[in-house]
């Protein structure tokens, strides 16, 4: 039980150990694949720069993700509760989601210039779709009997939404947020790769152009760390708000 609790970190540690050993064993040069100790050292050496750039990336990602959380919920509710919108907008959404967001970055740069704005928008665009689809599904699949119970009490549509649709879609919402937050990082970093003067994505572009491979890996490590942090945060909020959907676990907890 206790081991299971620490398992996530032990696995990460294990992977790093194997990596370290393999690179030493096969004598891989650091500009091909740096050892964990080497890029952790680079992380320490460049800590000031990395802090500035990762803070930038963190803020743009959270901004884009935040907009996606609100807009995704709103559009999801709208689409899920209206058969008209569902039929009408869905195809458009899928078509739009198929467009690689990387391809949009140059256009966004033309519109908004180099910097944080294209990164925020890219983070938003890439993370918004799974939220909409999940919330819409949660709301559109409310059991008809449940609607009948409320309608027979004289409930209006927004009562049904408020008392049933939205609470019922919350587990779907949080499931999508956990996917969306990692997507959001992808979005902002890809945008920074192409067009930004700050941010982890920018730092990585610069590092690889200078063959500072350990620095690039240090940047990757920080990105992964931020992603895990946000995921854990979302999962914690989810646990508080939708404990009811995890059948039986609260019994085990006492």
């Amino acid at each position: 039980m206790k081991l299971q609790r620490h398992l996530p970190w032990l696995v990460v540690l294990g992977v790093f150990l194997v990596w370290e050993a393999a690179v030493r064993l096969f004598d891989v040069p650091p500009f091909i694949l740096p050892r964990p100790t080497v890029f952790l050292e680079a992380l320490w050496t460049w800590r000031a720069e990395i802090a500035v750039h990762s803070l930038q990336t963190f803020l743009t990602t959270v901004a884009g993700f935040g907009i996606a959380m609100v807009a995704g919920m709103a559009l999801g509710v709208a689409i899920g509760s209206s058969a008209w919108l569902y039929r009408g907008v869905y195809t458009l959404l899928i078509g739009f989601n198929t467009i690689p967001k990387v391809a949009l970055v140059p256009i966004l740069v033309m519109w908004f210039g180099v910097g944080a704005v294209p990164a925020i928008i890219t983070a938003f665009l890439i993370s918004f779709f799974p939220i909409v689809v999940n919330v819409a599904t949660g709301i559109a699949t409310v059991e008809p009997e449940l609607k009948d119970v409320l309608r027979a009490l004289g409930a209006r549509n927004r009562d049904i939404l408020w008392f049933i649709g939205i609470p019922r879609s919350l587990p779907y919402y949080f499931a999508s947020l956990k996917i969306a937050i990692t997507f959001a990082f992808v979005g902002s970093i890809v945008s920074e790769n192409v067009a930004a003067n700050t941010g982890i994505g920018h730092l990585m572009t610069v590092a690889s152009s200078r063959f500072e491979v350990p620095l690039a890996f240090a940047a990757l490590f920080v990105i992964a760390l931020m992603g895990v942090l946000m995921y854990v945060l979302t999962a914690m909020v989810e646990k508080r708000l939708t404990a009811w959907s995890v059948r039986g676990t609260h019994l085990a907890a006492g």
Binding site: L153, F163, I164
Partner: peptide, 28 residues
């Protein structure tokens, strides 16, 4: 009208008491 079905259709995010109270939050 009060209705009941073969499926209990209780709301899992509410406890039993809150489920019973639901109509009072809805009826005009």
């Amino acid at each position: 009208v009060g209705m009941a079905f073969q499926n209990a259709t209780l709301l899992p995010w509410r406890n039993t008491l809150e489920n019973v109270l639901l109509p009072l939050q809805v009826v005009e």
